[in-house]
C-alpha cells in the first residue's frame, strides 16, 4: 500500500468525542468551515484524512479535514450543506458541541512526490481535502521541483478559499492556474473545464506525481488527460468518495472493489484501483 494508515484504533471507535466549535466561517453560500477545539493537546492528522462529524440528534457524516497539519491544536473542517446532517453541521454556532470520531483513512503521499514535480488538480469543494497537502508541501517547499495547482470552479463566485488562492498565486514558488465553467460580467480569467489547464502546466511527465480530487467525472477525465501526457497510474493519486457509515471498515457501505474507502482510502493510487475506477457497477 503506497499510502499510510495513521489512525490509532480507539477503545470505543463508534463513540463520538464531544468537541466545542470555536468558530464558523462562511466560505460560499452553501459551504462553511468549522474550527473545532480538539480534546487534550491537539489532534494530529495527515493530509487527506477525514473525521466522522456528528450533529447530535441528527446524524453523522464523513468530512475531510481542511486545516493545517502543522497545527494540531485546531481541527478545521470544511462542509458543504447537501442534506439533513450537513445542514445541521453548518448551522451550529461558536460554543456549540458536535461529536467527532477519527481521524481516519489514508493520506496524500507527499513523500512520494519529493524530488520531482507535483501537480495538484482539483475542482469545487475538492480543494478542501487537498488544502492540508498544499500547506504541508509549502511548509517543506525545498523538497519539490515544480509545484502546480490547477483549480476549477463552477463560477467566479464559487471559488473556494478565494483569499488564500490569491495569496498562493502571489508566490514565486507555486504555479496556480484557475478556471471557471461559467464566467460572469467581470471575470477576466480563463473559462473552461479544469482539464483545459493541464496543457499549460509545467511538469516532467516521466517523474511527476499528481494529486486529483473533485467530482468523480472530473477526476475520470483528468486521469485520462494526465495518462495521455505520460504520467503513469502509479504516480496518480485520487481521493475517493463513497457512502460511509462506520468509517472504520466494518459496515461495508463504502466498499469499492476490494477496498473500503474509509479504511484503505480515501486516497488511493490509480494503480491500486487498476480498473475499478472505470467499472460503473462499483
Amino acid at each position: 500500500m503506497s499510502t499510510q494508515l495513521l489512525a490509532e484504533p480507539a477503545v470505543r471507535p463508534m463513540h463520538p468525542v464531544p468537541c466545542r466549535v470555536r468558530s464558523v466561517a462562511r466560505e460560499l453560500d452553501d459551504t462553511f468551515t468549522l474550527d473545532i477545539e480538539p480534546p487534550g493537546d491537539g489532534w494530529e492528522f495527515a493530509p487527506g484524512q477525514f473525521t466522522m462529524l456528528y450533529a447530535f440528534g441528527v446524524g453523522e457524516v464523513p468530512i475531510s479535514i481542511s486545516g493545517d497539519p502543522n497545527d494540531p491544536s485546531r481541527l478545521v473542517q470544511t462542509i458543504r450543506a447537501v442534506g439533513a446532517v450537513t445542514d445541521a453541521l453548518t448551522t451550529v454556532s461558536p460554543g456549540d458541541t458536535i461529536g467527532v470520531r477519527g481521524p481516519y483513512g489514508s493520506a496524500w503521499p507527499t513523500g512520494v512526490a519529493e524530488g520531482g514535480d507535483l501537480l495538484i488538480i482539483t475542482g469545487g469543494i475538492g480543494l478542501a481535502p487537498l488544502r492540508p497537502a498544499i500547506l504541508e508541501v509549502l511548509e517543506n517547499r525545498d523538497r519539490y521541483d515544480n509545484v502546480t495547482l490547477l483549480y476549477g470552479a463552477r463560477s467566479p463566485g464559487e471559488l473556494l478559499f478565494a483569499d488564500e488562492l490569491q495569496e498562493w498565486r502571489g508566490r514565486f514558488d507555486l504555479d496556480v492556474l484557475i478556471t471557471v465553467d461559467h464566467g460572469d460580467k467581470v471575470w477576466r480569467g480563463p473559462v473552461g473545464v479544469v482539464t483545459s489547464l493541464i496543457s499549460r502546466a509545467s511538469f516532467d511527465p516521466e517523474s511527476a506525481v499528481a494529486f486529483v480530487c473533485g467530482p468523480e467525472i472530473m477526476m475520470r477525465f483528468t486521469i485520462q488527460d494526465l495518462e495521455r501526457k505520460g504520467i503513469t497510474d502509479d504516480r496518480l493519486y485520487v481521493s475517493m468518495e463513497r457512502n460511509m457509515k462506520c468509517g472504520i471498515g466494518l459496515c461495508g457501505h463504502c466498499q469499492m472493489g476490494r477496498y473500503f474507502v474509509c479504511k484503505d482510502g480515501p486516497i488511493l493510487s490509480c494503480a491500486e484501483m487498476s480498473g475499478t475506477f472505470w467499472t460503473r457497477e462499483v
Binding site: G123, R154, T195, G214, P215, M218
Partner: peptide, 16 residues
C-alpha cells in the same frame, strides 16, 4: 466537445 460535455453536466453544482 468533451470539455463542453463536462461544462454541461455542471459537475460542481450542489447535489440534493
Amino acid at each position: 466537445m468533451q470539455s463542453i460535455r463536462i461544462q454541461l453536466l455542471d459537475v460542481y453544482s450542489t447535489p440534493r
